[in-house]
Simulated scan of single mutants.
Amino acid sequence: MPLNIQLPTARASRRILVAGAVAAALVLSGCSTGTATESSAPSAPAVEPSLDFTGPGGEAPGTLDDLALTDEEIAKVKAGDFTAAFVWHTSSEFVTAVEKGATAEFDKLGIEVVASTQADFDAATQANNLQTVLALKPDIIVATAADPTSAAATFQPAVDAGVKLAIMTTPPAGYTAGDQFVSIVTESLTQAGKLDADLLGEALGGEGDIGYMYHDADFWFTNQRDEAFKAWTAYSYPDQKIVAEEGFTDEAATQEIAAAMIARNPTIKGIYVAWATAAQGVLAALRDAGRSDVKVVTNDLDATLAADMVAGGNVVGLVGNGSTNLGKGLGMVGAYGVLDKEAPALVAVTPMGVTADNISEGWLDDYGTEPPASVTGK
């Protein structure tokens, strides 16, 4: 049985404004966790935002189809008796689904999973988890850096030991593909942000005041996706006005933040939240306030939010990450590593917009299963 370490801690991280093609037409109004700020509606950009994006080191994304192994290479991996471990940044249904997809790929390749850890976005916890995992001497580590800056030192012992790092979304700062790690596997962040904007825009009929709750930390993956939502909202729905922006680092704080946001801005009819577990607090705040009129969109397929959506509640759209395909890509990248085969520096999986109308299709695309009875009521 793989080692499974769950060590919840408080999180602390710092904010960064992401510069990229999708944010070129925007000016981000700064705010800190727990303090509501109001902003003017951004003018619709004259030029349509680009769906192109680059990785944290300027990597251009390829696709999952760019990863392939020959029969001879597969046989070589199977004969190698390789092992793998997961050193995650946090836990969620999304991470669980990615791990499921990666484990399935490892199983096909004869790679044994010996450990799985999560750090609740705490850098010190992740450092401790890595040391515990290294004692098991895995050949491959699948990881997301909880804090990119400190992760450079955290993961250096793994690099020094020759462990092959397969990175989901966010590598340690200063690390490069083909050197300290094999490849990054992520979703197409700009496509995800556009899907969020379209889901909310369509639910609101393209007009009304909205709130924007973004991840207030130096986290490449969420930063670009959040900014893409703003860019596409400004371009595609110029009659929707962002009247309040709130950053958060602690998922447990989102209920309080959302409660303050809607109290100060009662005209809000829609809210974007960076990801699903953070959106659960927003949903609780809306229910407490009796605000059934406020529409919510977020990223990741979460059973609690999906059940609310299917029942006609506040949630009107979720963006699936293609989680099992992300996992498959990470498993393939791990195999590339032990074969010393050069992989694409960045691999992007296509996300999917999910509503109550296509929940079964979306769940199958993301998790490879039908949605649970708690979602469908069946």
Score class of each variant (00 low, 15 high):
residue 277 T to N: 15
residue 11 R to G: 11
residue 258 A to Y: 07
residue 315 V to H: 13
residue 136 L to W: 04
residue 356 A to H: 13
residue 289 A to V: 11
residue 184 I to Q: 07
residue 240 Q to V: 15
residue 374 S to F: 12
residue 248 F to K: 13
residue 105 E to A: 06
residue 156 Q to D: 06
residue 139 D to P: 11
residue 348 A to E: 14
residue 182 V to R: 12
residue 110 G to S: 03
residue 96 T to C: 03
residue 234 A to E: 04
residue 324 T to A: 03
residue 5 I to C: 06
residue 191 Q to Y: 08
residue 231 A to M: 00
residue 176 T to P: 00
residue 223 N to V: 07
residue 34 G to V: 06
residue 342 E to P: 00
residue 260 A to D: 15
residue 118 Q to C: 08
residue 263 A to E: 10
residue 107 D to N: 13
residue 314 N to Y: 04
residue 264 R to M: 09
residue 278 A to Y: 14
residue 361 E to Q: 15
residue 368 G to P: 12
residue 225 R to H: 09
residue 69 L to C: 02
residue 45 P to V: 03
residue 253 A to N: 15
residue 224 Q to Y: 14
residue 159 V to E: 05
residue 182 V to P: 13
residue 238 P to N: 07
residue 55 G to W: 00
residue 12 A to E: 13
residue 250 D to I: 14
residue 197 A to M: 02
residue 180 Q to E: 15
residue 366 D to Y: 10
residue 270 G to E: 05
residue 305 L to T: 02
residue 129 N to D: 08
residue 73 E to R: 00
residue 135 A to I: 02
residue 266 P to E: 00
residue 263 A to W: 02
residue 33 T to R: 01
residue 166 A to W: 09
residue 313 G to M: 08
residue 144 T to I: 08
residue 190 T to G: 03
residue 219 F to S: 05
residue 128 N to M: 05
residue 260 A to P: 11
residue 42 P to F: 01
residue 257 I to H: 14
residue 261 M to W: 11
residue 8 P to M: 15
residue 22 V to G: 06
residue 309 M to A: 09
residue 302 D to C: 02
residue 42 P to W: 03
residue 363 W to C: 07
residue 247 G to W: 12
residue 137 K to T: 07
residue 347 V to D: 09
residue 100 K to A: 03
residue 36 A to C: 12
residue 177 A to K: 00
residue 90 T to K: 14
residue 132 T to Y: 01
residue 363 W to V: 08
residue 83 T to A: 10
residue 173 A to R: 07
residue 33 T to I: 01
residue 44 A to D: 09
residue 15 R to M: 10
residue 53 F to P: 00
residue 321 N to T: 03
residue 329 G to V: 03
residue 286 L to V: 07
residue 378 K to S: 12
residue 288 D to F: 05
residue 122 D to F: 01
residue 249 T to S: 13
residue 227 E to Q: 13
residue 361 E to H: 06
residue 187 E to S: 06
residue 343 A to I: 05
residue 26 L to E: 11
residue 214 Y to I: 14
residue 46 A to T: 15
residue 120 D to R: 00
residue 112 E to F: 03
residue 331 G to R: 09
residue 311 A to Y: 02
residue 214 Y to S: 11
residue 319 V to I: 04
residue 333 V to R: 00
residue 6 Q to K: 12
residue 368 G to Q: 12
residue 348 A to P: 12
residue 67 L to I: 02
residue 128 N to H: 02
residue 342 E to H: 10
residue 236 S to A: 13
residue 295 K to P: 11
residue 6 Q to F: 12
residue 125 T to E: 07
residue 289 A to S: 14
residue 354 V to R: 13
